[in-house]
Nucleic acid binder design. Sequence first.
DNA 1: TCAAGATTGATGCAGCTGCATTTAGTGCGC
DNA 2: GCGCACTAAATGCAGCTGCATCAATCTTGA
Lengths: 162, 162
Amino acid sequence: MKRKPSTEATAAWIRLMRVQSRVLDAVEQDLKKAGFPPLAWYDALLALSRAPSGEMRPVELEKHMLIPQYSTSRLIDRLVDEGLAARRECKIDKRGQFVEITEAGRELHRKMWSAYSAAIEKHVGSKLSDADAARLCGLLDRLGCSCDELQSPAERDGAPAR
Amino acid sequence: MKRKPSTEATAAWIRLMRVQSRVLDAVEQDLKKAGFPPLAWYDALLALSRAPSGEMRPVELEKHMLIPQYSTSRLIDRLVDEGLAARRECKIDKRGQFVEITEAGRELHRKMWSAYSAAIEKHVGSKLSDADAARLCGLLDRLGCSCDELQSPAERDGAPAR
DNA sequence: TCAAGATTGATGCAGCTGCATTTAGTGCGC
DNA sequence: GCGCACTAAATGCAGCTGCATCAATCTTGA
């Protein structure tokens, strides 16, 4: 073991870390300036709004967002505190629950997408041709050890991060 | 305003966020399992060890690492606590100081690079040909609004993240 | 020379994250 | 039916981050 990475691989690693960090910062900053909550909230609302009846088990949400269990739990707390989601009893499994997006949640989701999509266009879209964006996707996918993720409806909403 | 991003741009954004997060997690995890501190420590030690006499102003370090001032300040605290660096008085500017890497710091840096480079190879190098890695670099660079960063000595040490 | 402003670095506070543990409920095998 | 292992979710604690602010020092310009 201990095979060294090539300089190309190392350079790619550095870029991946730096560029992602900058772009994410820029986008989060834009959202914050527009008075919106962090991206994680958007992702959660997106997942919930796409669910069949606007509700979902926390465990499901966890898988969609790729964040740990306790993190999901606390994120839901915050969404509920803000009236963006509600906890509903789960009758078939009393350990569990359902989380349901509220009308306020759907509305925030829509408003955020407007600012969010503008930020994506500004910080990504405008810097890359569609063809290059596609090439970038292809290369990145090869790093995502099996970027399972379902998708994707070319629908009229959003993009999950993380 | 409010021009929508193309689906390609959006897809690239999603990949960038997800893949970076996964790869970073994987690498950090490998380092942690090997009993090493977080990557940020490595980056700081790298910057210090590259400095002319192994010392550097916190403000300089800040620029190298692209992290906020208070963050740098506290990172230095931790390095000093662990005996990896030492604060030295700055005679020409009494507000300031120099941070100097210690021998222990240099040694940790070397040991970490061994594990770190193996992780990069495992999670990046092995999944991409050199040519593809170079292509990826090129595409990412276009997103980094002016990925200034100096570099890069094809030397025998490491790669800064963030 | 001296006040106004900029720069360097530290710190109190609130919020978030990870880790480990806890509480509660399910379901399997005997 | 009962015990035991497993899953769902919450939580206490420690550490880290961002924000705002502070104290000390330096620089500039009238």
